[in-house]
Design a protein around this nucleic acid. Sequence first.
DNA 1: CAGTGAGCGAGCTTCCGCTTGACTT
Length: 801
Amino acid sequence: MAKNLLIVESPAKAKTIEKYLGKDFTVVASRGHVRDLPKGDKAIDIKNGFKPQYEVIPDKKEVIKQIKGIINEHEEVWLATDEDREGEAISWHLAHVLGLDILNTRRIVFNEITKPAITKAIENPRTIDQNLVNAQQARRILDRIVGFQLSPILWRKIKTGLSAGRVQSVAVRLIVEREREIINFEPSSTFKVTAEFILDNGSKIQAELAKKLPTKESAKEFLESCVGSAYEITKLETKPSKKSPSPPFRTSTLQQEASRKLSFSVQQTMRVAQTLYEAGYITYMRTDGVDLSQQALDQAGNVIRNLYGEDYHKSRQYKTKTSNAQEAHEAIRPTDLSRSQLEDKDMGRNEQRLYELIWKRTLASQMSDARLEKTTVDITASSNQAIFKARGEVLKFDGFLKLYLESKDEDEEDEDTKGVLPPLNVGQVLELDYMQALERFSRPAPRYTEASLVKKLEELGIGRPSTYAPTISTIIKRTYVVKEGREGNPRNLGLFTLRDGAVSEGIKTEITGAEKAKLFPSDLGMVVNDFLVKFFPSILDYGFTAKVEDEFDKIAEGDQIWQDMLAEFYEGFDPLIKETAETAERASGERELGIHPKSGKVVMARLGRYGPMVQLGSQEDEEKKFASLRKDQRLETITLEEALDLFKLPRVLGEFEEQPVKANIGRFGPYVQLGKLFASLEEGDDPYSIELERAIELIKKKREIEANKIIKSFTEDIQILRGRWGPYLKYQGTNVKLPKDVEPENITLEDAHRLFEENKNKPKRGAKKKTTAKSKAADDKKETKKKPAAKKKPTTKKKKS
DNA sequence: CAGTGAGCGAGCTTCCGCTTGACTT
């Protein structure tokens, strides 16, 4: 048995290190944090100096048991968790849980998994840094206080089950405010004038008028003033320029590039990277460091020289610019830079693609600058002395561009495309082929994608590499935000063309407002955000995290007592909580849209129990009418007219078989209804205009499908049915999918009982966590369903008050 | 599946940050 037991965080890391250290060392993994605050209120004794109560995390009991089991077989324990605040805390918790000597246990750190780095670390052990641990405790406790005191306020004032926190609430705020910017944006337009000239040898060059023209009239006038003009090159300037490669990947930039180049979601990127990491192909993927180990730098040099020659190599070491970076790990890079592709058959296509991206980016970061020559040409019109500019770019040396070019986000697209210009001289006279003035509308800032949100959060110092993806999942799960696409609308652009000495007018169409996989705030997200910003402006402030991070740094330096820091924070926070709990009204995003022209009642939009809705009549009115907003409508923007339209449903179309036929829009789209039968409308049907005849047609069709649905019927509520996903058993309201190997026709009543019993104990499908949430939601639904049934009539029952 | 837009009433929800696993569709 080995003499030394070394504990790291990641099992994959443990495997690698064990190889480097040889048989004197056993290496095990803690798999992240092992102790944390328990869920309940007793976790922190605020009055008693914020004294925390820690518990072994249930999932980690097994890990602890395993380590305890072998600890006595070793003479020495080494704590080698990550070199950052959280890592230091993990070591400290491990020391407590394992009963190690807090003051004397050996603590070592390294930020790259290479043999020299680890050997050096072993030679220089230190002890646990209590200041750093205290900074982590302050961070942890502050987050718990903020999250667990804000959330219950939301349950009481808006809706049960909601959440708020230092990170997620600011992420939602960014998305809400961006949406409002877009809603309120008023596009202005200008006219861009471009001209195309023909040279003697037949080649063409494009030039653009230096200034944009403000109006349609001015654009037309300008083109007219060019009729009959001559054009001469009056200036020609050539300047060298260069482009440098981007640093190697860290978590946030990997997520951004994988989103732009491979259309991965941030979660997908992390999942694929994890696979590559566990297979040993790349270094650790949750990092804010951009430095490369000496070993990687040396190998990159060799690979580049071999592939492209000495001229292409330039060794560079990058430094992180992000404010709260902890740099516990090096950049994300291939573990072996000579491997340009994966030969592993077990790796999927996405792993291949992501690996290649990482390989190229890493290598490119060690390559020479690209050298360019930029040319600007002034072309002057003789008729009005207007100056057109043509720009050209010649790549003199490609350098790193041979391998990799970073993609750009929508908001930083470079609009003028520059090509190569033919040889030109000052004084040269050019012949105009045509000139055009095309209207261009200004555009609002783009909506966030997952990856651009991560970029923004990182700039603000909010969140960590390990939390970017989970944070996005959280705000989507809470339905504060939805990720979706949207179709654009056509828009006409003014266009004038000068050709063959005459100006003509035309129109061009562009599609505007189309979106793909963007983050949109929901009505709920907006209401929650407005509430938090109003009552907790200091917490929702974009600078809040940066401010507390400064304090954590002071604690880590030993210049600040962690309890004092928390006390000071709490002194400001606690009154906000108390005051909001007492004074704040319930928030529903209520907005008055106007007056119903016929009844004179007020029309308003607000968040209801089942989502956004419009209401006809105020709370005091006896008779009220309600209608849910359609999926494409928002509380913030719905108009009175649109609301009045919503009240037109349900429509009674007439009678069929002595029952009324109704048309309406439900959770699953528009439908017509006869008694208990619901039939969805088809493509081309419209609930506002559908007529009785067509509705009956749909109802008959649905009946036929229903009739065919029954394969076998034992009793009213025990039946074998044909469904969308194949045959199933309906047993007193619960549905059981039939096993593949049984013939639905041959099922007996006994089989049905048995299938039901067997299924009862099976967990519902879906992930563990989801199952509980889902079945709970189902329970809720049943309950709320029963109640209204019991008191069906009383629209006016609203007793007193 | 689809209706509703309340509330004498049981107990629950929630944070951020560090890690990976294993129910089946």
